[in-house]
Design a protein around this nucleic acid. Sequence first.
DNA 1: CACGCCGCTTGAAACATTTCAATCCCACCC
DNA 2: GGGTGGGATTGAAATGTTTCAAGCGGCGTG
Lengths: 347, 347
Amino acid sequence: MLTQQPRNGRAPSVKDVAAAAGVSLGTVSNVLNRPAVVSAATRERVERAMAELGFVRNESARQLRAGTSRALAYVMLDGGNPFFHDVAEGIETAAEDADLSLFVCNSSGRSEREAKHLDRLLQQRVQGILITPVDPDAPHLADLAQRGLPFVMVDRFSRAGGHCSVAVDDVLGGRIAVEHLIDRGHRRVAFVGGPASIGQVRERLQGARAVWAEFGMPEEDLIHLPTEALTVNEGRSAGERLAGLPSRRRPTAAFCANDLLALGLLQHAVTAGLRVPDDLAIVGFDDIDFAAAAAVPLTSVRQPRQELGRTAARLVLDEATNPAHVHEQATFVPALVARASTGTVRR
Amino acid sequence: MLTQQPRNGRAPSVKDVAAAAGVSLGTVSNVLNRPAVVSAATRERVERAMAELGFVRNESARQLRAGTSRALAYVMLDGGNPFFHDVAEGIETAAEDADLSLFVCNSSGRSEREAKHLDRLLQQRVQGILITPVDPDAPHLADLAQRGLPFVMVDRFSRAGGHCSVAVDDVLGGRIAVEHLIDRGHRRVAFVGGPASIGQVRERLQGARAVWAEFGMPEEDLIHLPTEALTVNEGRSAGERLAGLPSRRRPTAAFCANDLLALGLLQHAVTAGLRVPDDLAIVGFDDIDFAAAAAVPLTSVRQPRQELGRTAARLVLDEATNPAHVHEQATFVPALVARASTGTVRR
DNA sequence: CACGCCGCTTGAAACATTTCAATCCCACCC
DNA sequence: GGGTGGGATTGAAATGTTTCAAGCGGCGTG
């Protein structure tokens, strides 16, 4: 409820408030930061002046004086994938609890955009950075560490170490997905995913292969259908390749490296007249909301998305504030969520 | 490539760079801001010093001096809806062109979170705010205007005026959706959407009713199935209510106020054994990527999502920099994207 | 030779806030 | 009445950057 217009475009400062309330500027600052120390009468006078002038603290001046901002940042890999949005929500709740702002950036999988964002965040003097990097071993990430800026890798690991990370056990995720399919009676299964440069993809495939071997299945019956990205489009195109296989080699089930691929594959299957799960069972990964919302609800390997974010935020805050901080690789256990897309046991 | 460790935790400042390069701090600033004015030899010396120290501009000090930050902000309504993410991308490209940062916030449909975000952004002294508000007539929005802070409403209008806005013609959107269904031979149609407090919903319904009447269809054959939100879940529950109608009243097609509802409805229809589009045709609104990715690709009313964002950013920048700025209500024309969910002509 | 100009560099001021030592004032106690 | 303690307030310093008027030299011109 501000009663005065901002005169001459400049926003009112503590100095203006002090003048209006007839106190020194130190007192105004005390009202803002240590209200207990100032007498009730004065405090009320100052508060009234602030309201009348429409005073708003200038965050840059605070920061300058404090030497650090009161913000965290999350640089996400793909804003188009709801998975990352959910992670961001987890981070935000934790940031809010610590009374910090969160800057959410999106690299869209492009390394140069990522670098640009990081540069900006460095200039902003954020307290810490959470990132799902395009390349976990990129030099600009090592730079961050050398600068002593707290940072945590989310949903990725780097060989280098020197920082915390938070992720799900992807090998295990691959295992439970494929074990579920074997349970359902499938003896020929496709793994849909790529490129191999993504650690996640490699590990999920590795888990799949491990459990496949443990059940004594012939190696050639776990068919890898590589994709160029983890997108709906690539899932569709994998579906075409799958349909093109000679029928004696055609899998009865597919395990997709993420849910977007699975949705694309599902779409292709349905338009091609395949019944899901009878003709083709599908398992995704991440368990985004759209997996449960698909026409044939998708079985998926759930990652605790929000929890991932919250933990990452906790770790970066610990690194920022606790001198005795030691780096930690937090690993979560994925869980299979069975839905209609793998609904029936195959004989 | 920084060769020195940051000593004593403080980041190096222009002063440190000046000392290292043996010049005054004004010269360092010149190198940063007006490189042409400083001699090549000096410039190189300074640049080397900056690289060695790992100097990074302190944005808060810049801001403090400049009186304004170099950032825009977008407060989105629902981060879980990909529509808003696409709008944000459009804004970001425009912000990047203007060499501004973009802060993306998410109110999650909660007014108090929105207010909190706005408060923070005010403290940050952002140059302008783009917002898809929870309530276009909320008092904290009027506050912004009174403060003289440039702001633009995205995908919403307010009665009050006093600011720019950018949106699609929702009445027209409703018209083309329903006209398409009439074209396809449907004579009993459901409108799925709510709550009525959302202007969009009202206008889309209004357009639907208008065209329905113009074609001389009986009013009672356009059935409104109200929902409590624009979510997948609500779409599902609308599907249940729809299936529960006596068959002589049951519509052969549904027009959903957005794509999330449509996806939920589609899911319910498929699990209930209805064929889409033969038993039930479905039209959504927004044309998010997941609409095209659905098992039965969804016909939808496309909004130029990125364009919306870019235009909004342009307007807010104009307001921020052009003293002769006049407020503008930019309206875009929606377009029907026909897909399989309304694929066949009904006889 | 003196003057002016030009290219480059400098130093100080300004931005808004927080902090902290110093001061002030009042009441209370001896 | 003087001293003391303590609560409330003050004023100055410090944060890192940008800007701008002023200074400095050297060179060319009259």
